[in-house]
Amino acid sequence: MAESFSYKITTESELLTFDFGQVLSASETISTAVCTIIVLNGVDSSPSSMLIGSAVISNQTASQRVANGVDSVTYRLVMTITTSQGNTYVGLGDLDVYTSADVL
């Protein structure tokens, strides 16, 4: 089941982190990390433009910077990692995007 990040204002640029510490063994590290993004609700013809740069690996976490987005659209970040022990895991994180005028 996907977890949700806090909503993002369209003008914000945030580094969203997937922590795989509870999935990986103590000695297991992340070898590769690739992040993709899809639209769950709403309309955005080019959601991938939200991804700024590539995913960044740090110990047992993988992070992806996101920016922009379309108001009232719910996105899903899909973080796929491979590990030093040959495992492949996928982390899902939903992200709502709003304009600053939508939030009191």
């Binding site: 977890e3 990040f5 922590d19 999935v23």
Partner: peptide
């Protein structure tokens, strides 16, 4: 289950779990 109230503290880190 979406946000009924604006949150002040941002949650930018998700802790991945498996089968929990």
């Amino acid at each position: 289950s979406k946000k009924l109230k604006a949150t002040i503290v941002k949650a930018l880190n998700l802790i991945m779990t498996k089968g929990q």
